[in-house]
Simulated scan of single mutants.
Amino acid sequence: MDTPTLRSPQHRVSRTAVWYWAARAALGWLVLLAAQVVWLVADGDGDAWPVATHVTALVVTAVVAVAHVTVMPQWRYRVHRWEATSAAVFTQSGWFKQEWRIAPVSRIQTVDSERGPLEQIFRLANVTVTTASAAGPIKVSGLDRDTAQRLVADLTATAQATAGDAT
């Protein structure tokens, strides 16, 4: 078995992850925008200066929100990758702060799959590979459900067939 080296993994996450990331970001921005609208209405006592300040803040927030919801998901999709071989699991993730991780199969302790409510709507799942690493588990986020199920099954079978103490 070859020793795994740090490299870009082969597989991209599901293209649907772009829509999921955009929706999740949009929900966060909508909460902030709603709070600003409530503040504007509650503080709208007729004075032009506070109203203009609130409206300016609202417009700036909306522009930043649109930019974030448009750019971030595409950027993340270009960066996020994963691969599982008989030797290791490789991941690459992030958008501003990018991270590359390798987990040798012999160190795998558990393999889990999870789907939150929004991920279920988009038919996506995440796979978490827990090892004895102090850096924490490796997460492969944004996989379609079938791919996630296959990855969990393959990693579990490979880890069971691999000699090692997983520590």
Rank of each mutant, 00 (worst) to 15 (best):
59 V>E: 08
100 W>Y: 07
128 T>F: 14
43 D>I: 00
53 T>Q: 03
159 A>E: 07
150 R>C: 09
140 V>P: 03
43 D>H: 06
79 V>C: 07
66 V>K: 00
95 W>V: 11
68 H>R: 02
152 V>R: 15
123 R>C: 11
125 A>Y: 09
51 V>S: 02
92 Q>I: 04
91 T>N: 02
13 V>N: 11
21 W>R: 06
5 T>Y: 07
151 L>Q: 06
6 L>K: 06
12 R>L: 14
36 Q>V: 02
26 A>L: 14
41 V>D: 00
106 S>G: 05
25 A>Q: 10
60 V>E: 11
164 G>A: 12
13 V>P: 02
64 V>A: 10
156 T>A: 14
138 I>W: 06
72 M>D: 10
9 P>D: 11
65 A>S: 09
91 T>S: 10
42 A>I: 04
38 V>Q: 07
156 T>Q: 14
94 G>A: 05
161 A>R: 14
62 A>Y: 01
149 Q>T: 15
102 I>R: 01
131 T>Y: 05
39 W>R: 06
96 F>G: 01
114 E>Y: 04
79 V>T: 07
85 T>C: 03
125 A>C: 13
39 W>E: 12
5 T>P: 01
35 A>G: 15
13 V>Y: 03
50 P>M: 08
150 R>G: 08
6 L>F: 13
120 Q>C: 13
80 H>R: 05
38 V>T: 07
70 T>R: 08
29 W>P: 05
8 S>L: 02
128 T>C: 08
164 G>Y: 11
44 G>H: 03
12 R>M: 06
88 A>H: 12
32 L>D: 03
109 Q>E: 12
132 A>D: 09
88 A>R: 03
59 V>C: 05
129 V>W: 06
141 S>F: 02
37 V>W: 05
106 S>K: 10
151 L>N: 05
162 T>G: 09
51 V>P: 00
32 L>N: 06
144 D>W: 03
7 R>Y: 04
114 E>P: 00
48 A>Y: 08
113 S>E: 11
150 R>M: 06
31 V>G: 11
151 L>G: 02
10 Q>P: 00
118 L>T: 09
129 V>E: 11
94 G>N: 04
155 L>K: 09
43 D>F: 09
83 E>N: 08
80 H>G: 00
150 R>E: 15
5 T>R: 12
10 Q>H: 12
39 W>C: 05
45 D>C: 04
125 A>P: 07
72 M>R: 05
147 T>V: 15
61 T>S: 11
14 S>Y: 03
79 V>G: 05
162 T>Q: 13
